[in-house]
Design a protein around this nucleic acid. Sequence first.
DNA 1: CCGTATCCGCCCGGATACTG
DNA 2: CAGTATCCGGGCGGATACGG
Lengths: 135, 135
Amino acid sequence: MAEEQTRENTDRRDRRQNPVPVQRHCPVEATADLIGGKYKSLILYKLTGETLRFSQLRKAVPCATPKVLTRQLRDLERDGLVRREVFPVVPPKVEYSLTDFGRSIRPVLEAMSAWGRGYLQERRRKEKNAEDETA
Amino acid sequence: MAEEQTRENTDRRDRRQNPVPVQRHCPVEATADLIGGKYKSLILYKLTGETLRFSQLRKAVPCATPKVLTRQLRDLERDGLVRREVFPVVPPKVEYSLTDFGRSIRPVLEAMSAWGRGYLQERRRKEKNAEDETA
DNA sequence: CCGTATCCGCCCGGATACTG
DNA sequence: CAGTATCCGGGCGGATACGG
């Protein structure tokens, strides 16, 4: 029955009676749906190449409160990108890692990272210019 | 004064008193901020290689209502990704195109598109399997 | 043709406090 | 340690109607 629930929720964003059935999911849109959450891409990026515990993820993504972080992780898990492994020990231990499918998204993250660097530079430059003109 | 306003709104998502000043913007996060809107990546993708008028964009992104579409376009314009050109003619004519900066994001969009195709396939496959097992 | 105005629901995300 | 519980505000996005 767990599988059925998974199937039902494949489309997380519950768009009921969508008036436009034609090509509801173009590839770009589908990707945006999965990693469009505020911290999702960042989480995936941090998880690249290493397994992290919840507390480590909190440090890696400090802006996200535990609730938000949990939510995003649950989404990612539900969507098959992240694996959550609970170790029945004390103190509790939960590890998050990428699934094969999650690893496959790496090119997107790399592209985002690379482009983001350029963007931040551009932004700094503009801010500097504005300051100079003000001064 | 227009420039100042632009500077003020460089960080669109108004996170006041952010408690974590350390590395507020990692590259991945910055990119997600810019193209994280529901249709932004799709708009940029459709705008790749061709200038489109508003009405054409509406057809290209049918799920977005005019208001939403306008909003996303304004964001993209403000962020320097899209150029909006108004022609003072009757009937009115407005063309949207990518700036150089907007064009530079293409690798990200391509990566998203490519990965999205795989994701949709994977999803279809799973749905098929589930149906087969049910039957 | 290209939007804006208005209203609204909803979910996302934030803050704080609390548990197994 | 790894989360939930609860409450909350805000903004994003949707629907419909209207304006330049």
